[in-house]
Amino acid sequence: MQTTTHNDVQPLPHTSREIQLAARPTGAPTAEHFALVERPIPDLADGQILVRNTWMSVDPYMRGRMDDSPSYIPPFQLDNALEGSALGEVVAARSTDIPVGATVSHFAGWREYAVVDAATATPIAPELAAPHHFLGALGTTGLTAYAALTEVARVEPGDTVFISAAAGAVGSVAGQIAKALGAARVIGSAGGPVKSELLLDEFGFDAAIDYRAGDLAGQLAAAAPEGIDVYLDSVGGEHLRVAVQAMRPKGRIALVGAISGYNGAAAEAGPDLYKAATKEISLRGMLVTSYFPIFGEYIGKAAGWLADGTIRTRETVYEGLEQAPAAFLGVLSGANTGKMLVRLG
């Protein structure tokens, strides 16, 4: 199959910079666990495309992949490029399925140029929204929030909903989706007064809890004196324990993440499972990959919600591939508001 390229005036590069995993961390990772390396770009095989990455995502789940332990997704390999969601422009192709010039999303982030099997890339429709939204509200971030509240811990009209990490990528979208689904009251937990105010002023939450101020149980009781019906958990630990205590009978909990334990911190006291049983509470874990069949349904709704202001987004953007490790460390420490992204030059 003949290779097509962007044009004959701007020759394609022969090398590409990438971020590799230099060492496995014990506890919190640091900059020393990453290496910026320049490597040759391999020749395209039949069915492959070359993508010049323009945006990439860093996400908390990537911390688990830095450990050499079995999980639902393979660990990163030492002295190899990390990977994750990214999008960019197709600049060369040995595939008739995706043309040169198309913008696609794929899973070969952490590098400037990516050789990708065309079958694993997804063309995006930039007329729906700015491209970076396809890594956030219109990507797996948004799908996670939507699936959690429609399939895992279903929000019913009139519900009181509690969301942890509410100023982050998933949480900020989830709070607004909960309102769109008919929740009567949405409460978010975030770190610090600035983020707490943002939940109220920009993302439309009805109440905000600053977990750094202490007494999480008391703050939640004041915000929801009659209890909560749905909890979206991205934190685990004390947040999950307190949510079970505050849950009404037959409440629903979506277990999306547990960032409080990602760096190997000592386990906090878990939820009272006897209380969960006597209240007939459901606690259900989720992997967003299980909900890819409803991605089209979600994008159809979310594009409209973005356009009419039902969903508002924030992004924290680091500039340049070399800043990707700093962006990742920032997302683990809560430095981001909304989606954490890296814009590649």
Rank of each mutant, 00 (worst) to 15 (best):
P70T: 10
P70Q: 13
Y72G: 10
P74W: 13
P75D: 00
P75T: 02
Q77P: 09
L78E: 04
L78K: 02
L78M: 06
L78S: 04
D79Q: 12
D79K: 14
N80K: 15
N80Q: 12
L82K: 09
L82C: 11
E83T: 14
G84Q: 09
G84T: 11
G84D: 11
S85D: 15
L87D: 12
G88Q: 00
E89T: 13
V90H: 10
V90E: 08
V91G: 00
A92Y: 07
A93H: 11
A93P: 10
A93W: 12
R94M: 15
S95H: 03
S95K: 05
T96F: 12
T96A: 15
T96G: 13
T96N: 13
D97W: 12
I98Q: 12
I98R: 03
P99K: 14
P99T: 06
P99Y: 07
V100N: 04
V100K: 01
G101Q: 02
G101D: 05
G101C: 05
A102G: 03
A102M: 06
T103E: 13
T103W: 15
V104L: 04
S105Y: 02
S105E: 13
S105C: 14
H106E: 01
F107P: 10
F107S: 15
F107Q: 15
F107I: 15
A108W: 08
A108I: 07
A108L: 14
G109R: 08
G109E: 02
R111S: 11
R111N: 00
E112R: 06
Y113V: 05
Y113K: 06
Y113H: 12
A114D: 00
V115Y: 07
V115S: 03
V116K: 05
D117C: 01
A118Y: 00
A119G: 02
A121E: 01
A121R: 03
A121F: 00
A121P: 00
P123F: 02
P123T: 00
A125Y: 07
A125D: 15
P126N: 02
P126A: 09
P126H: 04
E127K: 06
E127I: 08
E127W: 10
L128K: 01
A129E: 07
A129L: 01
A130D: 12
A130M: 09
P131W: 07
P131I: 06
H132T: 14
H132G: 07
H132A: 15
H133V: 12
H133D: 09
F134Y: 08
L135R: 05
L135N: 06
A137C: 02
A137D: 02
A137I: 06
G139K: 00
T140C: 13
T141A: 10
T141G: 10
G142I: 04
L143C: 09
T144V: 09
Y146P: 06
A147C: 06
L149I: 11
L149F: 02
L149E: 05
T150I: 05
E151N: 13
E151S: 14
V152G: 07
V152M: 04
